[in-house]
């Protein structure tokens, strides 16, 4: 049993020292090359760099919080706690998990690793996924910022709560009916490391950060490229159309990758769109955006992400339209 951790460590030691060296060489070459060619003065590149880095810098503290929580859940929470707290009926566990989402004061970057930690701790996937979707959308900070961003219409915050919880629960129940555990790749390796809980915690933090972080960068890259190549003003022409307006803002939420704590202010600035379209922007954003889908692919595997993200997107849009037409 002692062999495996040792082998792991040796492998890690090798990859730690060789790959970064290569990267460092590439970096130095690029730095020197760009400085000489004066490329950094090019404003399009500069705008791309600013948007890319702002997504990464904004997400990093929340990702760190998420991996700390996730590793703490795996390492320190008793194994049977989830079974004791959650109802035995899986269908009932879904709304409980959705309501529990109100307790995590963070944004979507934190919730992906936390959902992973919950699953590894034995929480049924349906409940963990509902939590993953609900937590960034319905926590008190996000609802408060929505309340502030729409000073003239406080029903918007209520509509956001109802539509987000609704969509998250429907996705959870859909998972119970159609979902297969084989789609989810759950790394269980760290749980087998012999040694203290503290060691498990440390390995979990590093492992999760490297996994989710790398994919976060992919999502941020794509989003920044789209931001520069295709400015947000393309949606303006669709503002008059009711259904197209909803779809346009939902799609914009997917590519913009805005933090759920800020998206209400951006949604409020789309004054030419219908309230339902604004609602769709706020319901979709925390559940499906490029950086989130990338992180889900990194943590749970590609098989999972290609099924989960489109399903969630459709549920979120439908929930927004229904709640928007009733409440707004």
């Amino acid at each position: 049993m002692r062999r495996r951790p040792d082998a792991d460590k040796r492998h890690r030691a090798r990859s730690v020292f060789s790959l970064p060296l290569v990267l460092l060489l590439v970096a130095v070459t690029v730095v020197v090359g760009l400085r000489i060619s004066g490329w950094s003065a090019s404003t399009g590149i500069s705008a791309f760099a600013t948007v890319f880095l702002s997504i990464i810098v904004q997400a990093t503290p929340f990702l760190v919080l998420g991996v700390l929580l996730s590793a703490a859940i795996v390492a320190f929470v008793p194994a049977d706690l989830a079974q004791r707290v959650l109802p035995n009926n899986r269908a009932l566990a879904v709304p409980v998990a959705g309501a529990a989402g109100m307790l995590l004061p963070g944004c979507e970057c934190a919730s992906v690793p936390v959902a992973n930690g919950l699953m590894r701790k034995g929480v049924p996937p349906a409940a963990a996924l509902t939590f993953l979707l609900a937590a960034p959308a319905v926590n008190p900070i996000v609802l408060a910022s929505t309340w502030v961003a729409f000073p003239d219409d406080h029903r918007m915050a209520l509509a956001r709560l109802v539509a987000s919880l609704g969509a998250a629960m429907v996705v959870g129940w859909l998972w119970i009916i159609f979902g297969r555990i084989a789609w989810i790749r759950l790394p269980t390796k760290t749980e087998h490391i012999e040694g203290s809980r503290w060691l498990t915690f440390r390995h979990g933090v590093v492992h999760d950060f490297l996994h989710a972080g790398g994919y976060l960068i992919i999502g941020g890259l794509i989003s920044a490229v789209i931001n520069v190549v295709l400015p947000a003003s393309w949606v303006d022409s669709l503002a008059e159309q009711v259904i197209l307006g909803v779809l346009a803002l939902a799609l914009l939420a997917v590519v913009m990758c805005i933090c759920s704590e800020a998206d209400a202010f951006v949604a409020a600035s789309f004054t030419q769109f219908s309230p339902t379209a604004q609602l769709a922007f706020m319901v979709v954003g925390p559940m499906v955006d490029l950086k989130l889908v990338a992180m889900q692919a990194g943590i749970f595997g590609r098989d999972f992400a290609v099924r989960f993200a489109p399903t969630t997107l459709v549920c979120a849009i439908i929930a927004s339209i229904i709640v928007g037409s009733v409440l707004l």
Binding site: R35, W39, V51
Partner: peptide, 29 residues
């Protein structure tokens, strides 16, 4: 096992900061 391939990308933000002079959004955006 060990680090996933994608984690190599974590070096990218630092590379970008070192190659493109950091600046706030400006006239282009």
């Amino acid at each position: 096992h060990g680090e996933p391939r994608a984690s190599l990308l974590l070096a990218l933000p630092l590379i970008v900061v070192l190659t493109v002079t950091p600046a706030p959004l400006g006239a282009f955006s």
